[in-house]
């Protein structure tokens, strides 16, 4: 019986499969902070919410992939140029769809997701209240 050779749990945590890599050094702002701490904080928050295109579920802030580096450079350059983080996100969504953002924008498709905590708490309170009332009647 020839079963799969692969171990079930090769959690090669962090072991990134080696993508073909270019010989170009990373862009200046890929791995360097903006001099203005407020701008850097804005950029960091945005980078942590953008999904790396070539990774296995990592944000561009947590990836060594070159494409993620170039996206970090793009984010920092635009923030430094005074652009609004939301506009940068929209610009990327326009190109890659909502797959690119870990922070799904609210609309007809995502409202159940965003209102979920309220829905769940509401349903729970309704169930629990039903119990209280019934008991008082009895």
């Amino acid at each position: 019986m020839k079963r799969l050779i692969a171990p079930v749990l090769i959690a090669l945590l962090a072991a990134m499969p080696l993508h073909a890599q270019s010989r170009m050094p990373a862009a200046q702002w890929a791995n360097q902070q903006l001099p203005d701490p407020a701008q850097e904080a804005e950029a960091k928050e945005l980078m942590e919410s953008l999904r790396c295109l070539v990774c296995q579920g990592q944000s561009i802030a947590d990836s060594d992939a070159e494409m993620a580096s170039d996206m970090r450079a793009l984010v920092r350059e635009r923030i430094a140029a005074g652009e609004n983080p939301d506009d940068i996100r929209d610009w990327l969504i326009q190109r890659y769809g909502r797959w690119i953002t870990y922070n799904p924008p609210l609309d007809t498709v995502t409202w159940p997701l965003w209102f979920l905590p309220l829905i769940l708490i509401g349903a729970g309170v309704w169930l629990a209240r039903g119990r209280f009332r019934r008991r008082k009647e009895s």
């Binding site: 295109l53 494409m67 793009l74 890659y96």
Partner: peptide, 14 residues
């Protein structure tokens, strides 16, 4: 396109 900026503008991912 030394920093993939045109690629990103095109929405290309590889």
């Amino acid at each position: 396109d030394p920093n993939s900026q045109a690629q990103l503008a095109l929405g290309s991912s590889g």
